[in-house]
């Protein structure tokens, strides 16, 4: 089992502290053989991460709801495109407004771009007017690696039954130009809409684009 699964039994604050204090381990040690990695059509692997208030948020809490996972780094120009245009916040509020859950996850390691301590992250995402259900901190990158998050943004959609139905890019125009946002086909919006309508996702995987996740 993944190391994080042990945190499920720990109080939230301790979990947050331990996550922040764990020394960086080589990546191959993190992918323990028993850990089922995220795969389309399979149950999305459960995880627990601290939010910006130190509260542990667990994916399995949201069974029965559509869940969007957003890997982000507020310093990455590709992420900036979607926040500066307001498109990401709009999509967040549209998804949560329709009963869905939006988890924004930052896997930047301490000292790397986009990494913030909890209080600073809370302030930074508030400045962005992010409308996520929760902003989660993954400074050890374990959940990022579990899902194979490669870029920021990198998006995942989980259906009401807990099955992963989308893994890929935010949209179909690979650029850092805000002017491209309204012209683009947003894959996440489509995947959420199709899932809500009980339809299969037409494009379940697309190559994600962006900055590398700063593990």
């Amino acid at each position: 089992m993944l190391r994080i699964s042990r945190f499920l039994r720990l109080p939230a604050l301790t979990a947050a502290l331990v996550l922040l204090m764990l020394p960086a381990a080589p990546s191959d040690e993190k992918a323990s053989p028993g850990a089922a990695k995220a795969a389309i059509g399979k149950a999305a692997p459960d995880f627990a991460l601290p939010d910006v208030d130190g509260k542990t948020v667990r994916l399995s809490e949201f069974k029965g709801k559509i869940v969007v996972l957003e890997w982000f780094n507020l310093g990455c120009p590709f992420v900036r495109k979607h926040y500066d245009s307001g498109a990401m916040q709009k999509l967040q509020s549209d998804v949560t407004g329709q009963g869905g859950v939006w988890l924004s996850i930052c896997s930047s390691a301490p000292g790397k771009q986009g990494h913030y301590a909890a209080a600073e992250m809370k302030a930074a995402t508030a400045r962005e007017k992010a409308a996520s259900t929760a902003v989660l901190l993954d400074p050890q990158g374990e959940v990022g690696r579990l899902y194979g998050a490669k870029t920021t943004p990198h998006m995942f959609v989980i259906a009401q039954d807990g099955v992963l139905v989308y893994d890929g890019a935010i949209d179909n125009i690979k650029s850092t130009d805000v002017a491209d946002v309204p012209k683009a086909e947003n894959y996440v919006r489509a995947a959420v809409d199709q899932t809500r309508a009980g339809k299969p996702v037409a494009k379940p995987t697309t190559p994600p684009y962006g900055c590398s996740v700063k593990y």
């Binding site: 507020l74 310093g75 986009g114 600073e120």
Partner: peptide
Amino acid sequence: LRSLLFPAIFAGTSWVA
């Protein structure tokens, strides 16, 4: 130019090196 237009990227972050 464009990086200078994004002071928010560099402001208030703990990674500023």
